[in-house]
């Protein structure tokens, strides 16, 4: 019986946490306007990977590469 009561109370707390998340998300969507920091890649003119090695050792000396 005590286990059932524990799950019931924990379930109610979970529900309250869910309500907190949902309501704050709705307010954020409604009242926060244009919070993204623009399309930053607009300023990236060129990008080239000159050398790539996967699965190297953690002790790799990058000055010797």
């Amino acid at each position: 019986m005590s286990a059932v009561l524990f799950y019931a109370i924990a379930g109610a707390i979970l529900g309250l946490a869910g309500a907190f998340y949902l309501v704050t998300g709705q307010i954020k969507k409604s009242n926060e306007i244009g919070n993204s920091k623009g399309d930053r890649l607009t300023y990236l003119h060129s990008f080239t990977v000159l050398k790539a090695k996967d699965n190297v050792k953690s002790s790799l000396d990058i000055d010797k590469m």
């Binding site: 059932v4 009561l5 379930g11 707390i13 869910g18 309501v23 307010i27």
Partner: peptide, 28 residues
């Protein structure tokens, strides 16, 4: 923008009660 407090309270109570009751019933 600041939020309409009455609406926030109403929505929180609505969602809080519904989801808490669901959790109270489903988890056991």
């Amino acid at each position: 923008l600041p939020a309409n407090q009455d609406k926030v309270i109403r929505r929180s109570l609505l969602f809080g009660i519904i989801l808490a009751v669901l959790g109270f019933l489903i988890l056991p």
